[in-house]
Simulated scan of single mutants.
Amino acid sequence: MKNRLIEALPPAEASRLAPHMVVVDMERGRTAHEAGDPVEHVLFPLSGVISLMTLLENGGAIECGMVGNEGAVGLPAALRPRTALVRAVVQAPTRAIRVSASVMQEVWPHDQRLRALVDLNSEALYIQAAQSVACNASHSVEERLCRWLLSFQDRLPGQVLRLTQEYLADMMGVQRTTITAVARHLQARGAIRYRRGQIEVVDRQALELCACECYGVVRRACGHGAPGEGPGLNGESSGPS
């Protein structure tokens, strides 16, 4: 298990962080940080998924970003002390490298590569949030659900996703009955198989055909696309400038 940001650091820069790295295991449902709290640690997932949630006045929360082993949570705190703007929630059991934000702030001014990775990670999260706004306003619930399932599966091995319909409805800001109807339709088309608390992706290609273009945009921004499709998080732009 590896984190692609950590792997992208040159050996000399990685060695500065190595003594301060602690591997932690976080269960599903754990809050890594709450909106408004000081960001005390930066998390570099090795496996699993952490969702970034925008909070609503009615107590609800809608996902605005998703982080797996391609990125980090709380990385802007490497530049200077930060207050979290969103809630970070573990959505699948996650193993991560944890580094104190204060240590990152000491190392950051001296490491050019680390500074570049902070910028790339911030750009990828910004694209996710911006694309979510456009997606929620322009695309059907079915298109959005397919996009979300594909993005979730990109960050997890295997095809069985442990997700309830209630959870998906909360994530997407829609009624549970709407998710139920869409899930039944996708199951009838042979794209997924749903059992209580579990969704199995049976035909990924069918999901990709049903998903909106936002999936490809975010996939490339997070470095999951094929070579030549975008900058990703490897520190190099592989597409045309």
Rank of each mutant, 00 (worst) to 15 (best):
I192Q: 10
A206P: 04
Q205S: 10
R176Q: 15
T178L: 01
L150A: 06
G173V: 01
Q205Y: 09
T180H: 12
L161C: 09
R196F: 06
I192G: 07
D170I: 05
G190M: 02
T177C: 07
N234K: 07
G173R: 12
A226L: 13
G225L: 07
V160P: 13
G232Y: 08
L150S: 14
A183L: 01
R219H: 05
D154P: 09
S238Q: 14
G190S: 00
A188N: 02
C214H: 02
E142S: 13
P231T: 12
R147M: 06
L161M: 11
A211H: 01
E143C: 06
L209M: 08
R155V: 15
G235L: 04
E166D: 12
T178Q: 05
G228S: 06
G216R: 03
L145Y: 11
E236S: 07
D203I: 01
H139A: 14
C210W: 11
G235E: 10
E143I: 13
R204P: 11
A137Q: 12
C212W: 09
Q205F: 04
R155S: 15
G230A: 14
R162L: 10
E208K: 00
R155F: 09
E143G: 15
L149Y: 03
M171P: 08
S140T: 12
L156M: 06
S238H: 10
V182E: 04
V218M: 04
R193W: 06
N234A: 08
R204N: 11
L161Y: 10
A211F: 00
S238E: 15
E236N: 05
R189D: 02
R195Y: 14
T177E: 10
A183F: 01
V141K: 09
T180A: 14
V141Q: 09
A137F: 05
E208L: 00
Q187K: 02
A211K: 01
L145T: 05
S237I: 13
L161Q: 13
E213A: 14
R184V: 00
M172I: 10
H224F: 12
S140D: 10
A221R: 04
L145H: 08
M171T: 15
M172A: 12
G225P: 08
R155D: 13
Q165F: 03
H224V: 11
A169T: 06
G235M: 03
A183P: 00
M171C: 11
A206H: 04
N234T: 11
G190W: 02
F152E: 15
